[in-house]
Computed example of a mutant assay.
Amino acid sequence: MSEITPDLVRHLGVLARIQLSDEEVDRLTGQLDVIVDNIAKVSEVATPDVPATSHPIALQNVFRPDVAGGQLSPAQVLQNAPDAADGRFRVTAILGEEQ
């Protein structure tokens, strides 16, 4: 028994605010029915002893230890800056005077 009916497709079209012609309703009824049937077949096989997967091959992230390294001195940081003053980068103002 088909779960997807033309009336249901028309109702979904109204909810989605999509105007569907009779031809589109007929075509979508068949397509959506096939999709629902395929989902039902997968649901039959998906039992608690079958783990859910999002990828056919098991993936594992490779992480390195998060270890703090050496730090640069303020002089080292500013040595290649185009313009610096008072231990800071000097840049062109991008905001108006009111800021």
Rank of each mutant, 00 (worst) to 15 (best):
A93V: 10
D37Q: 12
S43W: 02
R10D: 03
V67R: 06
A46G: 12
I18V: 13
R27K: 09
V42G: 13
N61M: 08
R88M: 05
A75R: 07
E44Y: 06
L78H: 09
V67G: 03
N61T: 05
A93G: 14
L20W: 10
V42D: 15
T47K: 05
A40F: 09
A75Q: 13
R10H: 02
Q31K: 05
E97I: 11
P65A: 13
D49Q: 09
M1R: 12
L28A: 11
Q79W: 08
D37Y: 08
V9D: 03
A93E: 07
P82D: 12
L72C: 08
E3Q: 15
E98Y: 08
F63Q: 03
T29I: 01
Q76W: 10
V62H: 09
G13Q: 00
M1S: 14
S54Y: 08
S54M: 07
Q31W: 01
T5F: 01
G87H: 06
P6D: 04
L78D: 09
L8T: 05
P48Y: 00
V34F: 08
L95K: 13
F63K: 01
Q19P: 00
P6R: 04
A58N: 01
D26Q: 05
S21E: 11
P48G: 02
S54C: 09
F63A: 04
Q76R: 13
V67T: 10
T5R: 02
E98W: 10
Q19D: 09
G30Y: 08
A16I: 01
P82F: 11
A75S: 12
Q31I: 07
V14Q: 13
F63H: 03
P65K: 13
A75E: 14
